[in-house]
């Protein structure tokens, strides 16, 4: 049972990573790509970590895996704001539908 749940979470995680990459390829400007990478990839990592933590032999090993997630979230939150701000200061205008 736990093995099935764990495998399912790994596959769901892989799907979110895939969606993040797809967003990177398909979204029109750096701001929307940031949305895709910061949100989808982190959800993918979260699913993978929970999936692996379910298989862990004891609580400490599981918690160690889960400890990675908040760190990755903090990294994404900080880096995505820094990149967005940099893009803005470089004068990159957000893509708008009306103009297309």
């Amino acid at each position: 049972m736990i093995e099935i749940l764990s495998t399912a979470l790994l596959i769901v995680g892989a799907f979110f990573y895939f969606a993040g990459t797809l967003g990177l390829l398909r979204f029109p400007d750096v701001y929307s790509r940031l949305h895709a990478l910061a949100k989808a990839d982190n959800l993918g990592l979260g699913c993978v970590l929970i999936g692996l933590a379910l298989q862990a032999e004891n609580v400490a090993v599981a918690l160690k895996l889960l400890l990675i997630w908040p760190l990755a979230l903090a990294a994404s939150a900080g880096v995505s704001y820094a990149i967005a701000r940099r893009a803005d200061s470089l004068g990159i205008a957000p893509w708008r539908k009306e103009k297309q």
Partner: peptide, 9 residues
């Protein structure tokens, strides 16, 4: 990555 991200921000 987290330290880098926080420093960047």
């Amino acid at each position: 990555a987290a330290i880098g991200g926080i420093a960047f921000a």
